[in-house]
Design a protein around this nucleic acid. Sequence first.
DNA 1: TGCTATTAAATAGCGCGCGATTTAATATCG
DNA 2: CGATATTAAATCGCGCGCTATTTAATAGCA
Lengths: 148, 148
Amino acid sequence: MNDHDTPDSLLKLDLQVCFALYSTNLAMTKVYRRLLRELGLTYPQYLVMMVLWEEDGQTVSEIGERLFLDSATLTPLLKRLEGMGLLSRRRAADDERRVRVRLTEQGRELRIRAEAIPEAVACASQCQPEELMALKDQLHALRRKLNG
Amino acid sequence: MNDHDTPDSLLKLDLQVCFALYSTNLAMTKVYRRLLRELGLTYPQYLVMMVLWEEDGQTVSEIGERLFLDSATLTPLLKRLEGMGLLSRRRAADDERRVRVRLTEQGRELRIRAEAIPEAVACASQCQPEELMALKDQLHALRRKLNG
DNA sequence: TGCTATTAAATAGCGCGCGATTTAATATCG
DNA sequence: CGATATTAAATCGCGCGCTATTTAATAGCA
């Protein structure tokens, strides 16, 4: 009996946390897609907007640190949001390497409509809030270990 | 004090399971990227190979049901794996709509080298196996609720 | 049989995510 | 000061992941 066909081989899909993470993330994204469609946002765009709603005027790098994304991902995404009229991008006067991202009035207003989303997602998950918070904490712990 | 700037607003990034899921998935993918580079596979390609190592000769739809992906994602991915000489794609004789995917000898052999990966990932996660299994089960439960 | 409906896979187009490189501005140091 | 190093953002190319559509084969039914 070798490792290649034992039922408990570690190569089994359903035994891997990683696939659980991957596939649950896909499922979650599908739920968001429906909800975000009426706001005209994708999920990563929604994340950027949340970062800016928390604190406006951050640089591309600061947004990236928050979301674990780099400029190769963020620059085109931010340009799209700028094209939608939700934010502006301008080089910082004191350090022209940096680009400050600021919400427009329209970008700030979108927050009102976005307020309903977290609850709608929680509802779609059919979980108790405590369960979700516990899961969140475990995921943050795992992420810290993987990144560090 | 309104909902827009209360510290406990549900729109806060770090309060959302969804972002925990999203960002932990990114971190996990980064770990895999390093390990899979020497096999010449991406993570989704690795998933497809695992499905076929578990059971060879599945159709595109069957692989898709297992991975929660559709033919729009799988067809180009499978063509790449075919191009690498890891598998073959052929229309089923009894139903020419279906495409059966079969591992080549090279595809089967790759499994030997892949055997080391789950352990390496578990190691990178710096977690106890029991923790990871518990997390996996919670994620599967959440996925089921989100999909159903 | 022949017509329509359904199904499986493929295709087109778009938005991430990232490795690798480039461009431009600032920092550092002789 | 000037040359080099570092940093921030942008750019390029590729592989997903998905919506919408298309193509082709089979099923179902009058």
